[in-house]
């Protein structure tokens, strides 16, 4: 077995923390909470990274900020709330005559997106940054085209029969996945007219599918569920089939999976759940053999007795062994994973 070492625990939220997002370009990590704020931390140093609060954004959302995502260029931050709205944020240019540098960066809301009729559950930017997908309890998935200071509705997808929990984009192509309280995963393409349509429904889960993450290579999808399994799906053109089920790894609902770069190859998969446990697997595959998931390490009670609501890998060069997690304790914790 390898090991997991906690680099830091960052307190600050006064209520449940629901999700975290690593900026893909800058050394920044963001977390969001029922306390309606987003906290941004910067970090420096490779061997022993030091985390410093950069700013706390009072979002103006009137309910829980449930979800948060960066655009691929790292310049835009999207927040989605139980108040149904999505807000896009942009860092303001630093003022040279700023008296007090300790107040941190200023982030301004540049666009407020309305559309879905009930709680926003997840937001995600496509790999090009061209599209933003959101999903909601009103059973819809919305795809927006994002422009500087503006947006346009590209499609409203009403394929699910229940609350939609997660949206995730393929890392290389314009393929969107959504997962739901209806126990299914749907996959979508766009056509030449920019209309999105479903091309596959994955039905193997037996309960709510809370979260999904594509492998960095794009050939696999991991999904985590209230049925206490993590499923790995393999792509064959437009068809995706279960190739492995990770059973018995959690005892309560698995709220989050994240598939990171790890140390190359197929990368590392992390999961976080209501049982407080975080698991990390190394994913490998030999020619002509099925994919293998080798458990590198497990962290029990990673947020004390609290649920883990999200885990996410840093994807920046030099930091791909760094995992973040947030929980009902309002904490953002940063871990370093070392394989044996």
């Amino acid at each position: 077995m390898g090991s997991v070492e906690q680099i830091v625990q960052l307190h600050g939220h006064t209520d449940k923390a629901w999700q975290l997002a690593w900026n893909p370009v800058e050394p920044l990590v963001a977390s969001c909470s029922t306390d309606k704020t987003v906290r941004l931390y910067s970090y420096t140093g490779l061997v022993h990274p030091k985390f410093t609060l950069s700013t706390s954004i009072s979002t103006g959302h009137t309910k829980t900020v449930r979800t948060i995502a960066w655009s691929p260029d790292g310049k835009l931050l999207a927040t989605g709330s139980f108040d149904s709205s999505v807000i896009l944020w942009e860092k303001q240019p630093a003022e040279e005559d700023k008296d007090d540098p300790s107040t941190g960066d200023d982030w301004d809301s540049i666009t407020r997106i309305e559309g879905p009729e009930s709680e926003c559950k997840c937001v995600a930017f496509s790999r090009s940054g061209e599209y933003l997908a959101t999903c909601s309890r009103d059973k819809t998935v919305w795809v927006f085209s994002v422009y500087p200071d503006d947006y346009e509705v590209s499609s409203v997808l009403m394929e699910h029969t229940q609350d939609v929990k997660c949206v995730a984009w393929h890392p290389k192509e314009d393929i969107l996945a959504s997962s739901s309280y209806d126990d299914t995963i749907k996959l979508y393409h766009d056509d030449r007219d920019d209309e999105w349509y479903p091309f596959a429904t994955l039905t193997d889960h037996a309960s709510t599918v809370w979260c999904m993450s594509f492998s960095p290579c794009g050939n696999y999808l991991a999904s985590s569920s209230d049925d206490l399994t993590i499923r790995l799906w393999e792509r064959h053109d437009d068809e995706w089939h279960t190739i492995k089920v990770l059973n018995g790894t959690h005892e309560r609902s698995i709220y989050s999976v994240s598939w990171g770069r790890g140390r190359g190859g197929l990368g590392w998969l992390a999961s976080g759940a209501g049982d407080g446990r975080i698991n990390v697997w190394e994913m490998t595959r030999q020619p002509q053999e099925p994919i293998e998931a080798r458990l590198i390490t497990t962290q029990e009670n990673s947020h004390g007795v609290s649920d883990v609501n999200a885990v996410a890998w840093c994807r920046r060069d030099g930091y791909t062994d760094m995992l973040g997690s947030v929980g009902d304790d309002g904490c953002l914790r940063i871990w370093r994973i070392t394989p044996d």
Binding site: K16, T34, K63, D83, D138
Partner: peptide, 14 residues
């Protein structure tokens, strides 16, 4: 139904 409007904070975690 869509939610009725109106802020309320922190009750879930209190």
């Amino acid at each position: 139904d869509p939610d009725s409007k109106g802020p309320l904070s922190g009750l879930a975690g209190s």
